[in-house]
Design a protein around this nucleic acid. Structure first.
Ligand SMILES: [Mn+2]
Ligand SMILES: [Mn+2]
Ligand SMILES: [Mn+2]
Ligand SMILES: [Mn+2]
Lengths: 220, 220
DNA sequence: TATTTTATTTAGATATATCTAAATATATTT
DNA sequence: AAATATATTTAGATATATCTAAATAAAATA
C-alpha cells in the first residue's frame, strides 16, 4: 500500500505531535503543524484511517497505529539520513538542510537509502542531534535535559535543539553554541531564569531562559 | 514561474523528441513517450503553451521555445548529475539509476545541485555517456567518430549515419543497429577491416568496413 | 441544565493530472 | 474530389489535495 507525499507528511506530523505515538492528536493541532485548514485535515484523516495507519474517531482526534508508526519512522529515517548527507558531504550549514530533506525524504528507493546509510557510515544522529531510526524503526534515544533545567556547575554536551527553525539555528551559530559543544552552567539568574554558560572551556555566553529551554543537553 | 513535476517530465520528453529543439513534435509522439493518452497530452500542451515553454498550434504539434529549452536542460542536468552520484558514490549499476534519477531530478534546490556538481568534481558525462549541461544549459557535445575508426574494446553510442538511403537504413534495421544504440567493438579483422560489434550489451553483429564507415558514434 | 463558545465535520468549489468516448480536423487513398 | 483512415481535440468522469462557508458536535460557562 503506497502513500502519497502529502500522506507521508501528515503521518510524520501526527507521529511527532503524538510524541512517538503515546498521545492522541486533534484535528486543529494537525492543521497548525501542517499549515493547512482543519477542513483539509478532516479529509486527510479519513483517508489515513482507511489505510489503517491511524485510528480515527470523528470529533475525538486520532491515534497512530503500529503500522503508521513504522511508516512514519521510515520517513523520519530518510529525512535525517539526507540531512547528514547534506551537512557531511555537501557542506550545507545545519540551518540549510531541513527544506531540502523535506523533499528528499519522499524519494522511493529502499536500495538508495540502504546505500546512503552505508555511505554515511551508519550515522546514529542527524545534524540537529536527533536520533536516526534503523531500518526496523528502532531508535536509540539518549536521555536529554533542557539546558534551562540544569543547575550551576553542572556540565554536559549540546545534542539537540527543540526549535530547529533557521532563525534559531542561525542565532546559535552566531553566539557559538552548536551540536556537540561541551558546556558548563556558570550562573543562573533567579529573577528571569537566564543563564551564563561556558562553551568548550573557553567562551562565555549569556542566554535567556527561553533560548535555554530550546537547547537539549546530555549531562556528564 | 514554477513548474510541477508532471510539467517538467513532459517538457523534458518534448525536448528529447524534438532532438534538442530542432524538430516539431506531435501529440501522439508525446503520448507514446510519456505513456499517457493523447487526450491527456492535449491538455498538458495547452498548459505548457500558456506558460510559453512551448509554442503550440492545435493539430500541428509543438515546438519548444528558448525558455523551454533552458528549463528542459536544467532538468536534464539534474537527472544526469544524480545518475553520476548514484554510480560513483553509491555503487549503483548503470542500469539501476534511471528510475531514481527520474524522481531526484525534481528536487528544487539550486544550492543542492551546485554543491552536488562540485562534490562529483564537475562531471561532463553521465554513466550512459550522455553529456551533462552546465548551469547555463550549455552542452559540450563529444566529437563523432566513424565506427570503423574505433579500436577494440572502445564503447559508444550510434548517433547518426552518413548514408541515409532507404537501403542502408533497412539494412541497419535488419541487423539491429539503430540511432541511439549503445555499442562496443569486440573485434576488428585486420585483413578486410570488418568489425564484430556488441549492441546494447546483448546482441553481437558483424559488419563490413564500408558499413561501419557510414555509422557515426560518440565515444564514452 | 441551558446557553454560549470552540472544535470539527460536511458541502461545495478550485486546481492538477489523468482517463474513456465522442466529435472533429487533417491526411491519405481511391 | 469524395471517401476513408488517422490524428487530435473536446466533453465529461475520476482521483488527489486544497480552500471557504455553513452545519453540527462537543466542551465550557453561566
Ligand atoms: Mn516532506
Ligand atoms: Mn533534523
Ligand atoms: Mn522525472
Ligand atoms: Mn543517463
Amino acid at each position: 500500500m503506497n502513500m502519497t507525499t502529502a500522506e507521508e507528511n501528515y503521518l510524520k506530523a501526527i507521529y511527532h505531535l503524538s510524541e512517538g505515538g503515546t498521545k492522541s492528536v486533534s484535528t486543529n493541532d494537525v492543521a497548525a503543524e501542517m499549515k493547512t485548514k482543519p477542513a483539509s485535515v478532516s479529509d486527510m484523516l479519513r483517508k489515513l484511517g482507511d489505510k489503517e495507519v491511524i485510528e480515527y474517531r470523528k470529533y475525538y482526534g486520532v491515534n497512530i497505529t503500529e503500522e503508521g508508526k513504522k511508516r512514519a519512522l521510515q520517513t523520519i529515517r530518510k529525512h535525517r539520513l539526507w540531512e547528514v548527507f547534506l551537512v557531511d558531504k555537501l557542506q550545507f550549514a545545519w540551518d540549510e538542510v531541513h527544506e531540502v530533506a523535506e523533499e528528499l525524504e519522499h524519494i522511493q528507493s529502499p536500495l538508495l537509502i540502504q546505500r546512503l546509510d552505508a555511505y554515511l557510515n551508519y550515522p546514529k544522529f542527524d545534524p540537529h542531534g536527533d536520533p536516526i531510526p534503523d531500518e526496523f524503526g528502532d531508535v536509540r534515544a539518549r536521555p536529554r535535559v533542557a539546558l534551562n533545567e540544569m543547575e550551576i556547575d553542572q556540565t554536559g554536551q549540546i545534542v539537540a535543539v527543540k526549535d530547529s527553525s533557521a532563525a534559531f539555528l542561525r542565532y546559535l551559530d552566531k553566539v557559538g553554541a552548536y551540536i556537540g559543544a561541551r558546556i558548563k552552567v556558570l550562573d543562573k539568574v533567579e529573577f528571569d531564569g537566564s543563564l551564563e554558560i561556558l562553551v568548550d572551556q573557553k567562551k562565555t555566553l549569556f542566554m535567556s531562559k527561553d533560548v535555554a529551554a530550546n537547547i537539549l543537553v546530555i549531562q556528564s
